[in-house]
Design a protein around this nucleic acid. Structure first.
Lengths: 308, 308
DNA sequence: ATATTCCTTTGACTTTAGTCAAAGGAAAGT
DNA sequence: ACTTTCCTTTGACTAAAGTCAAAGGAATAT
């Protein structure tokens, strides 16, 4: 896996760094601390967090371990403690006897609900000091900040078209558009791994905290002409501007593979995608393939790789 | 001290509460955690935080205790530990032999600098994932959020005009405008405590985390006419919209004291203040007093207290 | 001057949080 | 079938964080 345009720009100017640190200091002191102390009520923080993380659906110990970053032994003991307190029930995983699954009992659920109520109350108390317009502003600012922080944490890397993550992404993509296209979607229309690997093309996957959240494929149509396909973003990661990042990465790879033009097609129902392609410099062209799902065809001339 | 328009509005809508909690969860997990772990490097977190809090200027143990919320005994031991490591020097307070003051030694300063460098690096790494425009957006969003969170934490209360905090605020106000008015300012022109206490008027102080950060006074000019004076905001708390809050509070008190009109004057150099008064519904009127510092006079007719 | 309040230190604990290694049962790869 | 890899449990610790109460010197209030 090689990172794609990892650092597109020079180191960030100091004032951004300071703004982030200032905010961090203020926020963790004012809010984070409060949250933790009040939530914990009568329970060690570790246990409170664990309960919260088990949540309504339950979770395997393995998952809890990775989500909370805990030592296996430590977690095992904590779960046992919660079990003897009657808050948690532990069973073996139905499909894999190595795994155990922790679920909340009724008492556990009550406690988590109470935790949530307290946290809500705390947040309400905080917001009570603001007027309606100011609350709107705050919510908007926090939303924007979170969006950008998430985006900053996502890395786009090139992977082999036959890799596990690539296949998973394509499967999710296929399921997604199958549900969206009125006529459904036949996975046979997906690119073959060899078309997007090695010198033939490229397959990019975006990772957020280790999980694939977006993908995009590039294959060669003819010498000098690449085709972008299967740009997909996980529902949880939409509206972050991730598709553009994947697109930019694919264009870079196209340039590196000697393409001067990239093309792509889209289905009639994917109107946001069409808008994005236009906004990214693509112009509509006549049909160039016989893709039965396509209704619009686009092309973009790549800036020739400038050498300094 | 009685709170002023403490809860001007109904409990905040759930979506604001959720937005705040969502952000809080994300932020503390992603950023806060990182920060702590990296900062601690080779040193327990408690000590690292303590070093940071002692900072360049040093601080009394008492202050450290309240800033960090630590047990006295625990703090005492931690400071001793840092002292034996040669990072901190402890001396008795020059004016109060009960107090000790902790200062950083050269070695301590080096370590804090290194801490800061690491934290900067971390922030840089985070920002590296964003483009220039996105960084600007992030900084703006964090700035707005912090401003609003601070504002939410500030409460405006009425205090006695002769109280310690009132006097401190007025002194700071006097020093402030003395530096700003070309002709200086004579503190004899300040209101007398009795003019702004009891039924005669009101004195409001805004507190942020226990410290006074703004004030404003109301006295009665003649029956039915109040005068607003000495609206002042601490330099650290400017640009939060605090002056407006104080002003609104004073207007409410004026209404409660039976005033239908409030007046105020401002100095020629305080142009932002003039703009604010206009934006808050004040209109310029002819000179109504003989205040030698005044160059503009304003008036606002108060909405008569509506009963439901 | 005397009582009271402050601030810090010390002793004696407890709880949380976390680490490391060994071991054993279960699934996956060959 | 056999090795390897996974996942969890247990034992044996350590370090950090925090609590409580007693005590003594310094300021303040009365």
């Amino acid at each position: 896996m090689e990172p794609v345009s990892a650092n597109p720009s020079a180191p960030p100017p100091a004032h951004h760094v300071h703004a982030l640190r200032r905010f961090n200091r203020y926020f963790t002191r004012r809010i984070g601390a409060l949250d933790d102390h009040y939530l914990g009520q009568d329970r060690p923080l570790g246990e409170a967090r664990l309960l919260f993380e088990i949540g309504g659906e339950g979770a395997s110990l393995r998952e809890l371990r990775s989500r909370l970053g805990l030592d296996a032994g430590y977690l095992s003991r904590m779960v046992r403690a919660l079990e003897t307190q009657g808050l948690v029930r532990v069973t073996v995983h139905p499909h894999d006897n190595r795994l155990r699954v922790a679920e909340l009992t009724a008492a556990g659920r009550t406690e988590v609900t109470e935790q949530n109520r307290l946290a809500d109350e705390l947040a309400e108390g905080l917001l009570a000091g603001l007027g309606g317009r100011q609350r709107d502003e705050l919510t908007a600012a926090l939303g924007a900040a979170q969006r950008l922080l998430r985006l900053a944490a996502i890395t786009v890397v090139r992977v082999d078209g036959a890799s596990r993550d690539a296949r998973d992404c394509l499967a999710a993509y296929a399921a997604d558009i199958d549900a969206r296209f009125p006529e459904g979607f036949d996975p046979a229309a997906l690119v073959r791994p060899h078309e997007v690997s090695g010198d033939a093309g490229a397959f990019l996957v975006a990772y957020e905290e280790g999980r694939p959240v977006a993908c995009g494929a590039l294959r060669r149509l003819e010498p000098g002409v690449g085709e972008i396909r299967h740009v997909w973003v996980h529902p949880d990661a939409r509206r972050l501007g991730l598709a553009r990042r994947v697109l930019r990465g694919l264009e870079e790879h196209a340039g590196a593979l000697g393409c001067t033009v990239v093309r792509l097609d889209t289905h009639a129902v994917l109107t946001e995608a069409q808008a994005m392609y236009r906004a990214c410099g693509y112009t509509e062209i006549p049909r160039y393939d016989d893709n039965v799902y396509a209704a619009h065809w686009f092309e973009k001339r790549l800036p020739s790789a400038a050498k300094p």
